[in-house]
């Protein structure tokens, strides 16, 4: 059992938790993820490590309430326990030789992008951050990003905060004005990462994307996190849990990944509604 040391709401649907897991805290690096199970009957879900504190032996996770499991996780409070917590899994984000980097986060993906920005900042790289949200109410981690970035741009789809538009717009104008990066690292919805990749490709800037496919064991056994890369014209099967989660954006078959990501969406929608009802009932009975 793993204790919840701290819990903080970042916006109406996004929560930060600090979990006591010293072995994971000791090893985890930006870009890696953990798998957790809320309770004895729960499913295994992957969440990216959003930070660690080696002294207190805690791992920070940030999740958005999107399905039954994150809904259930969100009912847990400080001092309570979650059943299972395993990691760190996946390959850490490559930082070697990157002096000037552009970090692009979308929505809750910013929770994963933030520690990557922090890592580059600590390594002395020049960090440009572009983060995007649907609207002002959903903005998270703005101060953190600002403190780790040499240049910072925030956009919202509806213009209710920061510049109006999506993350590819400021990226495009930077690249157009002659800005160069050793690497663009993008983390967020697949459709956003696809368009960031297409934009960067026009200017020959390499792109690393952080993939978050369906996963069960996360240790290189079940193969649920399979995705297709197009490497030198050939289709190659890769597994996000052991080969990723970071991949060369130029090679990822985003359309397939988007389609496969919806494989269990009917089930999940149903399970989410069920969980909402259960929680509502439990609250009524209190």
């Amino acid at each position: 059992m793993y204790k919840i040391i701290k819990k903080r709401r970042l916006n109406p649907t996004v929560t930060e938790m600090h979990i006591e897991a010293p072995l994971v805290a000791n090893k985890a690096k930006p870009g890696q993820f953990i798998i957790l199970r809320v309770d004895e009957s729960g499913e295994r879900i992957p969440l990216t490590v959003a930070g660690v504190n080696k002294d207190s032996g805690t791992v920070k996770i940030i999740y958005q309430i999107v399905g039954a499991t994150t809904k259930k996780l969100d009912t847990k409070e400080e001092g309570e326990y979650i059943q299972d917590f395993v990691g760190p899994l996946g390959v850490p984000t490559h930082t070697e030789g990157i002096k000037k980097v552009c970090i692009i986060g979308g929505g809750v993906g910013c929770a994963i992008a933030m520690p990557v920005a922090e890592e580059f900042h600590n390594l002395g790289a020049d960090v440009t951050s572009i983060i995007g949200f649907r609207n002002k109410d959903l903005v998270i981690l703005e101060d953190e990003f600002k403190s780790f970035s040499d240049k910072f741009v925030l956009v919202t789809d509806d213009g209710s905060y920061g510049d109006k538009g999506n993350v590819t717009m400021p990226l495009k104008s930077m690249l157009e004005s002659g800005e160069k990066f050793d690497m663009i690292i993008t983390i967020g919805p697949l459709i956003m990462m696809k368009f960031v990749t297409l934009t960067a490709k026009e200017y020959n800037i390499p792109v690393t994307v952080s993939m978050n496919p369906i996963m069960i064991d996360g240790t290189g056994m079940c193969g649920g996190c399979r995705l297709t890369l197009i490497h030198e014209g050939k289709r190659v099967t890769k597994f996000a849990c052991v080969d990723g989660p970071d991949f060369n954006g130029y090679e990822v078959d985003f359309d397939e990944a988007m389609s496969r990501g919806r494989m269990y969406s009917d089930f999940e929608r149903h399970a989410f509604e069920e969980t909402c009802n259960l929680i509502k009932k439990a609250k009524e009975n209190e």
Binding site: L23, V24, V86, G87, P88, L89, T219
Partner: peptide, 8 residues
């Protein structure tokens, strides 16, 4: 349980 040798 929950210890991945090669990772944890």
């Amino acid at each position: 349980t929950n210890v991945v040798i090669g990772k944890t």
